[in-house]
């Protein structure tokens, strides 16, 4: 009897939680898809939220990033924190930490014209800060913006130029 009563109550809780969860998720502007993209081989991982910043079309891998880097007509922009940038970064990359964007953007804009190709990066395929930064820069007029998805660690391991 007690067992059946507890089973009923558990069903009530689970049912209520499931119904509320899906309803709120459906209407919330921050709701996420029922299935996310968690396969790093396909690019930066994402829960595919309604306000998602990840755009796979902007993504380039390490090989393409290196080609653009050697071309010399682009600016690599580091979205990581200032501390991580100072520990090590892609050679000649500019630091524009995502969380300091508002304060540093004007200085960045004065130095780098919006005709340049901008390549943003952060720590790798589990980090979406590079996408967020690319979105901010696109909104500010930088039309040729790409996201290098493999991040600083992969670049360093590949033996490509870094500054430490």
């Amino acid at each position: 009897m007690l067992y059946r009563q507890i089973m009923k109550e558990l069903l009530c809780f689970v049912g209520l939680a499931v119904i509320t969860a899906f309803t709120v998720n459906f209407f919330s502007p921050k709701g996420i898809a029922l299935v996310g993209e968690w396969d790093t081989s396909k690019g930066v991982i994402t829960a595919r939220a309604k306000d998602d910043v990840v755009d796979h079309e902007l993504e380039i891998d390490i090989i393409r990033a290196r080609e653009i880097y050697l071309n010399g007509k682009s600016v690599f922009v580091d979205a990581r924190t200032r501390e991580l940038y100072e520990e090590g970064h892609i050679k000649n990359a500019v630091s524009l930490p995502l969380y300091e964007f508002d304060g540093l953007f004007e200085e960045f804009m004065n130095k780098y014209p919006d005709s340049l190709t901008i390549i943003t990066y952060c720590t790798g395929r589990e980090c979406e800060d590079s996408h967020q930064l690319a979105q901010y820069l696109s909104e500010m007029g930088y039309s040729d913006t790409k996201v290098y998805v493999d991040g600083y660690d992969e670049w360093k391991q590949g033996g490509y130029p870094v500054e430490e």
């Binding site: 969860a21 996420i32 898809a33 029922l34 299935v35 829960a47």
Partner: peptide, 8 residues
């Protein structure tokens, strides 16, 4: 299952 866990 990741998103479903995060939702429920």
């Amino acid at each position: 299952s990741i998103n479903l866990i995060a939702i429920i």
